[in-house]
Design a protein around this nucleic acid. Structure first.
Lengths: 193, 193
DNA sequence: CGGAATCTTGAAAGTGTTCAAATCAAGTGG
DNA sequence: CCACTTGATTTGAACACTTTCAAGATTCCG
């Protein structure tokens, strides 16, 4: 089960792993399963673990005063799951994270995470990841302040075709900041051309 | 001039600086000035430098197909300026960054930046910064997909009162993803209560 | 003073939302 | 394999929010 992660690590770092380092990762990074609809974190709780998805899909969301859910993030295989603010700062999370399908992951605590940062390959990967994540967030912000609903959808399809396949349309709509009815109409309009 | 940065560094790290480290920072981090409306980066160019604002204010923005500007970010004293994606990945930036007032900063190149990462206090600060930045981005995304124009504005006022004082209203509006006319009306409505 | 930038306001148009009903799809248990 | 339930999607009509455009008012600054 860790093999998938080691592959991922190799792809995302330039430094090889020693045997001790490999052992340390095996020790710190534990298998964990969630069934569909089970929660990884609930809003109000501290997000104690950082997860790496081996198989499955999760959704991070908030619930507003009217009870409407807004999708902050979507994750599938080879993605990292957690509310980073809560995880890093040890504060209560404002997000829920739930499994959208039965999900297998590897998880580590914050202290294990910090421990692993001593492994060169791991810390290098984390930094690359931060950079990528940062760029993606910046892009999403730019999209949300600059684009119409249709443009946001087209951009999303182009950027994350896999997520379209894995999540129902009303979840995609809430990720994009529009009503599911709106997304349905947009798709129809796009087909009619 | 570097004193302001050393203060900042002390506040944002737990490790003290050795004299050699201080010297390295002085060497790598050069003073740089921009007059109002001069650009730090132009869209299409590589963002070669990372800046730390000593005095002044900058604005990061894109221009869409209709020629409308959208404000991606605002920076003032003690903030870092750059298009991080372009800076880190050495790709052309899609953003413009301009001085909104006469601005003094300290700048470093990417290689100087990487060099400075060997300084413990500096790299610790960078990591904290990344975490904070990440949390702020996440918050902005959540706000933009969940909130109405009025809620976004109220949230912004509460989070960044200083920026309200430093930038004109039409810039704030474009940062929040609404027309300046809309923001004007929202403010009036809020006053009438 | 004069010019440039900014802010306000009304009216009209546009975009996206809400709500409810109907349709469609998938999964479960008999 | 069907009936039933639940979840997902589509659609129309009314509505709400936001934008656009144009004009006028205000502020700032040389």
């Amino acid at each position: 089960m860790h093999e998938l992660f080691f592959d991922y690590l190799k792809k995302n770092s330039s430094v090889p792993l020693s045997e001790e380092e490999k052992a340390l990762i095996l020790k710190s990074f534990s298998p964990f399963k969630l069934r569909k609809r089970q929660h990884f974190v609930q809003a109000g709780n501290h997000c104690k673990n950082l997860g790496f998805i081996i198989k499955g899909a999760t959704r991070q969301y908030t619930v507003d005063d009217s009870g409407v859910e807004h999708t902050a993030g979507l994750c599938i295989e080879n993605w990292w799951v957690c509310d980073r603010e809560s995880f890093v700062m040890s504060t209560p999370s404002i997000y829920h994270i739930e499994a959208w399908q039965d999900t297998e992951m590897l998880i580590m605590s914050r202290s294990e995470n910090l421990e692993l940062m001593k492994v060169r390959a791991f810390s290098e990967m984390v930094h690359r990841l931060n950079d990528k994540n940062n760029a993606a967030n910046q892009k999403r912000i730019t999209s949300s302040i600059s684009f119409t609903a249709e443009e946001r959808y087209r951009d999303f399809v182009a950027s994350y075709p896999e997520l379209i396949r894995r999540f129902p349309q009303h979840i995609i709509a809430s990720y994009l900041g529009m009503a599911q009815d709106t997304l349905s109409r947009i798709k129809r309009q796009l087909l009619q051309r």
